[in-house]
Computed example of a mutant assay.
Amino acid sequence: MELKGKQKRYLRAQAHHLNPLFQVGKGGVNEEMLKQIDEALAKRELIKINLLQNTDLTPGEVAETLQNTIDCEVVQIIGKVLVLFKVAPKEKYRKISPKVFALGK
């Protein structure tokens, strides 16, 4: 799914007040972390991830890994903070995605 400019702008505004849920350290991104990130996205649709100073990975590498493995959309990368979006599989958790799709029309 490719997000348009208005959709990304809306998601950035929604993510502004969020605190990062996950931190990537020197251990990098492992299978357990990918599973937890996917579960968090399934319930929240929009999360932030923070890269710690001791990590060897760049934000771009982490973003590419997440996009390829859990099929999420990287909305924004600011410094060492990533904003991720993925449509929730269950209808009851879809609070943000209907508004995002309405902006795309």
Rank of each mutant, 00 (worst) to 15 (best):
M1F: 09
L3R: 01
G5D: 14
Q7P: 05
K8L: 01
K8N: 00
Y10M: 03
Y10K: 02
L11Y: 03
R12P: 03
A13E: 14
A15N: 06
L18A: 13
N19R: 14
P20I: 06
P20K: 09
F22A: 09
F22C: 09
V24C: 10
V24Q: 08
K26F: 14
G27M: 01
G28R: 05
G28I: 04
V29Y: 06
N30K: 05
N30A: 04
K35R: 14
Q36V: 00
D38E: 15
A40T: 07
A42E: 12
K43T: 15
K43D: 09
R44L: 14
R44P: 00
L46Y: 07
I47G: 08
K48F: 11
K48D: 04
I49A: 00
N50D: 13
L52A: 15
Q53Y: 14
Q53H: 14
N54R: 10
T55E: 09
D56F: 14
D56G: 15
T58R: 12
T58Y: 11
P59Y: 05
P59H: 09
G60Q: 12
V62D: 10
T65V: 14
T65A: 13
T65H: 11
L66Q: 04
N68Y: 08
T69V: 12
I70Y: 05
D71V: 06
D71I: 05
D71T: 08
E73H: 14
V74N: 03
V75K: 02
Q76S: 09
I77D: 00
I77S: 02
I78T: 13
K80F: 07
L82H: 11
L84D: 05
L84T: 07
A88V: 00
K90D: 15
E91K: 13
K92F: 00
Y93P: 01
Y93D: 13
K95F: 11
I96A: 12
P98W: 02
P98E: 03
K99M: 11
V100Q: 04
V100C: 06
F101W: 14
A102Y: 09
A102E: 15
A102F: 11
